Amino acid sequence: YSFKQKKWAVGQYLSENMSAVEIARRLNMPGKYGRDQVTVWVHQYQSNQDVFLSNAKHNAHYSKEFKEKVVQEYLNGNSSLFSLANKYGIRSRNTVFRWVSKYNSHIDNRDYDPHPEVHMTKARRKTTQSERIKIVQYCINHNKNYTETAAKFNCSYQQSTAGHKNI
């Protein structure tokens, strides 16, 4: 949904002109999901104003330490997934849920530093078969960090992942 639609929905709800159900119907949002989504927008707006209502242009960077801090706060029972997302400016409570799930499954929540230019570009250059083998080996040896691999070898994200997935 556009920024304009989200802003309108939040305005209608906060001014008590319409309920979340009525707003969801007007925006052609399906059933319970629609009502819940409207209330999520309202809570996000109340916590972080327009930042949450705008559409993200790229993924956010979260350090390993930050993820661990948020997970520990959740596990200590101090806050819900939703309140932690709002408190720390995380766009979705599902992001916090994934971090907690990884932690509980003993999977490392690594640093994440997005390189949108790597994900968004088409192949930057043609690669030979021997180059692709070298790229795949590097990727495997560096914890399957496709983004880092693509940036290092000046190739697209798709090129850095394609060979590995076929091995």
Rank of each mutant, 00 (worst) to 15 (best):
Y1T: 12
S2H: 07
K6Y: 02
K7F: 07
W8R: 01
A9H: 02
V10H: 00
Q12W: 01
Y13R: 02
S15T: 07
E16G: 10
M18Y: 01
V21H: 05
E22P: 02
I23E: 00
I23V: 07
A24M: 01
R25V: 04
L27P: 01
L27F: 03
L27A: 01
M29N: 00
M29C: 00
G31E: 10
G34F: 02
W41E: 00
W41C: 03
V42D: 06
Q46A: 15
N48C: 06
Q49G: 11
D50F: 07
V51I: 15
F52L: 10
L53Y: 04
S54W: 10
H58P: 02
H61F: 14
Y62G: 12
S63Y: 02
E73Y: 11
Y74W: 10
Y74T: 08
G77L: 13
S79L: 15
S79G: 14
S80T: 13
S80G: 06
S83G: 05
A85C: 04
A85G: 04
I90G: 02
I90W: 00
S92E: 11
T95E: 09
V96I: 11
V100M: 04
S101C: 07
I107E: 14
I107D: 06
D108S: 06
R110K: 11
Y112H: 04
D113A: 12
H115Y: 08
E117W: 06
E117A: 10
H119E: 08
K122I: 11
R124Q: 14
Q129P: 12
S130G: 10
S130P: 03
E131S: 11
R132D: 15
R132Q: 14
I133V: 12
Q137I: 15
Y138A: 08
Y138S: 06
Y138N: 05
C139H: 07
I140W: 08
N141M: 12
N141A: 13
H142M: 01
H142R: 08
H142C: 07
N143C: 15
T147L: 09
E148D: 15
T149G: 04
T149I: 04
T149F: 01
A150Q: 01
Y157S: 03
Q158T: 13
Q159C: 08
Q159F: 11
S160V: 01
T161M: 12
G163V: 05
G163R: 03
H164D: 14
I167F: 15
